[in-house]
Structures are given as structure tokens and as C-alpha cells.
Design a protein around this nucleic acid. Structure first.
Lengths: 162, 162
DNA sequence: ATCGTTGCAAACGGTTTGCAATTCG
DNA sequence: CGAATTGCAAACCGTTTGCAACGAT
């Protein structure tokens, strides 16, 4: 799934690196792919496929839903983007250009995403993997809860069958 | 989403605790709910809704798909079960009766799930949350990679657009 | 010109829901 | 008895796919 794990060279121009990668795999550098990467770069936050489609899909030169999904998968596979999955299964993406690795706290009420990172945790999880003979490729460390604002507002509510 | 977080009292009979909870919420203790809880207790591993339906759904006294999903959600909401989400979005559940908290390493090739736990990581993530004013409810710490067996077999393969 | 790519719409797969029939308390 | 629950099938919703038209190299 992940081809490029150490993407430090990405400090150079993202578009250049992207077209390099495409070329190296005999893939084509199309307007749609450039626009989606661009969208991700400008966003500087997590965006869903639907958001991208909403914003780029209805214009003079539009693009289709399928292309958004295909391109996001391409970007993730290539290590250019990072997907997080909400508790309900929906996914959102962020680009990885010259951003250090980090994990997420996700508010279950308002969906705010707070980034955190802790090198000690990283080290500990690596050694846990090593002990188990497990070869880690990537990980997902997400804390679900309530952000400062939402925690102040309401207590957790009950829910029965329906 | 989570109602009961400290479930240490679950060292007593799970069925008793379950019907207690149901009663306290004016919910009914039906055959289907008991069977599904029972299935989870016997399984002692992660099972999907589909597996439960496959095994319990086609018998003299069967139960429907919808009931499986409704009951799993009920169990998760009540803190009796724990859901993990695979990279592709599918979910699987395990019961939480008298099992200490743990996280998972998931093999991307064969889907084997290895449990791990590290109290230091837990502490560090709690303080990370506290610093951000975030009230943690639960978390998901999953390391994706390849288990000992699969790591030995094959290198990671490439993939393009289709 | 060639082959990857796109867009559409239909298919998909897991999950949820509306509703009438059933069951628990 | 009455409210909660079930089972069914249809609806949902995000995502994927088949295919003919298109476009990058």
C-alpha cells in the first residue's frame, strides 16, 4: 500500500515531485490529478472526497467523483497523502509534504481534528512491533473524545436500540 | 457513544451484568441479544457482523442481519464490546469482559491481529490530551504492517490507477 | 497513434431504517 | 396489554468499476 515512506525529499516542489513519481510509473500527469493535489496542498487540513468533488466538480472544467477517489488512492498509495478514518468509517485526507508525522485527536461532537505527536510513543510502539516480529508499515493513533468547546457544552447522552 | 468506561465490575457474570444494564435502560433481554453476547464471549477474538450472522442466522431459531448490527451497536455503546476498523473500513468486534485494555497490530496481508499494550504509551497519550484541553473517551492505536509470516514471504507490491 | 485516464452511471458492500408482526415484562 | 424488538426488504451512502470517449506523451 505504501511505496514511499521516507519522503524527506518532499521539501522540494510538490508538483515537481508528483510528476516525477507519475513519470517513473508510466502514469500521466493530467489536469485533474494536478488540481486535486493542489487542492490538498492549499487546504492544510483534512478534507473528504466529497468536499473535493463539491469544490472542484462543478466548474467550467470539472472533474468526476470517480476521479477524486482514484486520485486520492493514488496519492495515498504513493505516500503523498495521509488518510484518517472517522469513527463512522468516513475518510478524510491531508497531504504529507514537509509535514512531520503526527497523530490525531478527533472530537466526536464537532469533528474537530487536533494534531499531536510524541516521539517517545513512536519509539515505544516500534519496539512493541519488533518484539512481536511485526514489520510496521504505518500506523493510526487516534484519540476520540471531546474538544475543549464541546466538553464544556453537554454530557454524553444515552442511546438505546433505535 | 460510550456510557460505561470503567468496567471492572465485569469480572462478575457477563450475562448478569448485561441484563442489569438492559433493565436499567428499560430495554428487553431477548433471546437474540443473549445469543449475540454469548457468541462474542465464546469467540475470544475479533468477529464481524457478517460472521455472527453466518453462524447464528441460519438455524431453527435464527436472527436477522439488522438485529446483529443493532445489537453490536448497543454492546459497543454500553462499553461491553470493542470495535476495530480495518484499513478498508470493515469493522470487527471483541467483548471487553475482564480483558485489560490493549491495542492492535494488524497484518495488511493476512489480517492477523496481534494485541499489544503499553502503560507508558497510555499515560503519554493521556497527558497529550490533557495539554490540548481534550477530554478523551476512547482511542484507537493500530499499527498496520506485516506479521512475521507475511513479512518473510513477499515485498510490498506496486499499484497504479486501476 | 497509443495507451493511460476520465466521466458517467450502474454496481457494490456494509450498514441503517420503515414498518408490520412478534415478544418480553 | 403495551412498549420494545424483531425480521424483512428497501433505502442509504460512500466507494468502486465497466466501458466508451478522451487526452497526454
Amino acid at each position: 500500500m505504501i511505496l514511499i515512506l521516507n519522503i524527506n525529499y518532499m521539501r522540494t516542489d510538490p508538483h515537481a515531485v508528483f510528476s516525477q513519481l507519475l513519470e517513473s510509473r508510466d502514469l500521466k500527469c493530467t489536469r485533474q490529478r494536478r488540481e486535486i493535489l493542489d487542492y490538498l496542498l492549499r487546504a492544510e487540513k483534512h478534507v473528504t472526497a466529497e468536499e473535493i468533488y463539491r469544490d472542484l466538480g462543478r466548474r467550467d472544467s470539472a472533474l468526476g467523483r470517480a476521479t477524486v477517489f482514484r486520485t486520492l488512492r493514488l496519492l495515498e498509495d504513493a505516500g503523498f497523502a495521509n488518510g484518517i478514518t472517522f469513527a463512522d468509517g468516513r475518510k478524510a485526507y491531508e497531504h504529507k509534504f514537509s509535514r512531520p508525522h503526527h497523530d490525531h485527536m478527533i472530537c466526536v461532537d464537532c469533528r474537530e481534528v487536533i494534531e499531536f505527536s510524541n516521539p517517545v510513543i513512536e519509539r515505544l510502539q516500534d519496539s512493541a512491533a519488533r518484539e512481536a516480529g511485526f514489520e510496521p508499515l504505518w500506523h493510526r493513533h487516534e484519540i476520540f473524545g471531546r474538544c475543549r468547546k464541546c466538553a464544556r457544552r453537554a454530557p454524553v447522552r444515552k442511546r438505546g436500540n433505535k
